[in-house]
Design a binder for these strands. Structure first.
Lengths: 126, 126
DNA sequence: TTATCTATTGACAAACAGTCTATAGATAAA
DNA sequence: TTTATCTATAGACTGTTTGTCAATAGATAA
């Protein structure tokens, strides 16, 4: 994640669907499925799913979390201080768990679509 | 594809990344890789890659085609009348061919990311 | 003559993602 | 003890992408 650093975002590289809600949301919810986390932790944890988390602007994650809280997919409670402001801890709700399940199914279906496209492309190469 | 029909778009269903540029573009370019096509044909041909093409608004495709023409990934020429206005035929350019190649690689990488996410989810189920 | 099917376009709005900046507390370094 | 650095969160603003609606147009079938 970047903060106060320069050189970021879409500049230079393409990152197709990686930063879309449809992929980021399940990445975040999955982390909360394992354990409660605060935003910065979720951001750092994204490196398991993406490469170049350094180029990811933190505000995107915080914004998404607040949005998911409004939709009641997650709920937050006040965590401890660490080194800085009080942490906002997130916990997955029951609705969030079902939403994760649905997102997983959608991703499976999407993978199938990608596979079809790739195999058609391959068949035209020879 | 829908035209003058009601009941469409995001209403009702979710369609994760399916309608994103990152997926639609390679679907369209791949069709042109096989043979020259006009917009309506490309739209119809999408059913090979998506389900529910009926719910896809044609203007999205036409808009994308014009955009790709500006970027010189495709070029157009005037086709024959069929039953209606003159068809605008599209042909893949050399740049478009390389772009398709790159998109294919990106999709492969994305599939890998999906796989990772799915396997983590699965490992937590047991 | 009206309806339907093929075919394309443009305007407008809503959703989404990217960028920058501000704030804040704690600690390590100068 | 002041400055820099790291963790941590938030808000405003911009620009891009998608979705929606409606208009147009030629041909044919009812």
């Amino acid at each position: 994640m970047r903060n106060k650093r320069h050189g970021r975002g879409r500049r230079g590289q393409q990152h197709g669907q990686l930063r879309s809600k449809g992929f980021l949301q399940p990445c975040l919810l999955l982390q909360l499925y394992e354990k409660d986390c605060h935003g910065y932790e979720l951001l750092a944890g994204l490196e398991e799913f993406l490469d170049s988390v350094e180029e990811m602007d933190p505000s995107i994650i915080y914004r998404l979390m607040r949005e998911m809280e409004e939709k009641e997919l997650v709920e937050s409670y006040s965590g401890e201080y660490s080194r800085g402001p009080k942490r906002r801890m997130y916990r997955l709700t029951t609705a969030g768990r079902s939403y994760l399940q649905i997102s997983i199914e959608e991703l499976k279906q999407f993978r199938t679509k990608i596979d079809r496209l790739l195999s058609i492309y391959k068949s035209l190469q020879k």
